[in-house]
Amino acid sequence: MAEAEAGVNDLMGKLEVLFELFLYVCLILETSTSKKTRRSKEDKCIVHILLLRSGVESNPGPKTWIAEIPPEMPAADDDIAYLSKYIGKGWQNLGRKLGLGPATLDHIEHDFHQGGMRDQIYHMLLKVKAPPLEATLKNILETLDIIEAEFSITVEWSELSLRFKQEKILALQAENKELKTENQELKDKLASRKRNRRARKRCSKDGDAPTGVKMIKHK
């Protein structure tokens, strides 16, 4: 009996040691994991700060829908009017980046101050789209996207995308479709004329007048 109790006590002692070892291992693993998690969070935080400082996160490059606008598409007057409605403070920096000099921008601010900021932006954009600068719609939007964060320009992209993301692309597709139809009509006319010339040549070789002439003579 005494030997049995001694065996049980010995087993319990070993189990307690194993349990303590298990707790110790768990504690080590938890500490290691928490350090990795903390380090990972710190790394992410550092990257986040660097991105903010570099302006990458707040301005991740050209909007995808801007990239889809054909580079040669001009900015129509109604496009300019719409743009001027959804661009705010800092618009002078957009004018500078698009090629306008400081004096020109000063004159625009002075000459159109009574019409307010929207009128000033409108005439600034008219200047950059006119010769010699000739900025296209894509030039304006890409430049605005690139410098927005750097100069804290106020832009309502959601409103601009409503107009330019689909409307311009669909309009261009419709125009291309119309041109293709006109080209096909011209091709059909040319093919018809070629067939008529060939028919006349065959008739002249055979010594016969065209069918239409024969009918008139017969009558």
Rank of each mutant, 00 (worst) to 15 (best):
M12W: 04
K14P: 01
K14Y: 02
K14R: 09
L15W: 07
L15G: 01
E16I: 01
E16R: 03
V17I: 09
L18V: 13
L18F: 06
F19G: 06
E20L: 13
E20T: 09
F22A: 10
F22E: 10
L23C: 13
Y24G: 12
Y24L: 15
Y24A: 15
Y24E: 15
V25R: 12
V25C: 08
C26G: 10
C26Q: 13
C26K: 14
I28M: 05
L29C: 11
L29T: 10
L29D: 02
L29E: 07
E30T: 15
E30H: 12
E30Q: 14
T31G: 14
T31K: 14
T31M: 10
T31I: 14
S32Q: 13
S32I: 14
T33Q: 14
T33W: 15
S34C: 07
S34R: 11
S34G: 06
K35F: 08
T37R: 14
T37P: 01
R39N: 15
R39G: 10
S40Q: 09
S40R: 12
S40N: 07
K41F: 05
K41L: 08
K41W: 03
E42P: 00
E42G: 02
D43R: 08
D43E: 07
D43H: 05
K44Q: 11
K44R: 14
I46E: 09
I46G: 00
V47T: 09
H48N: 08
H48Y: 04
L50N: 07
L51K: 07
L52F: 06
L52R: 10
L52T: 11
R53F: 05
R53E: 12
R53Q: 13
R53I: 10
R53M: 11
S54I: 02
S54E: 08
G55Q: 04
V56P: 00
E57H: 04
E57F: 04
E57I: 05
E57R: 08
S58D: 11
S58I: 10
S58T: 11
N59K: 04
N59P: 01
P60K: 00
P60L: 03
G61P: 06
P62A: 10
P62T: 07
K63E: 06
K63L: 09
W65A: 03
W65N: 05
W65G: 04
I66Q: 03
I66A: 00
I66G: 03
E68N: 08
E68Q: 08
I69D: 07
I69N: 06
P70R: 01
P70G: 00
P70T: 00
P71N: 06
E72Y: 13
E72D: 15
E72Q: 15
M73L: 15
M73C: 11
M73S: 14
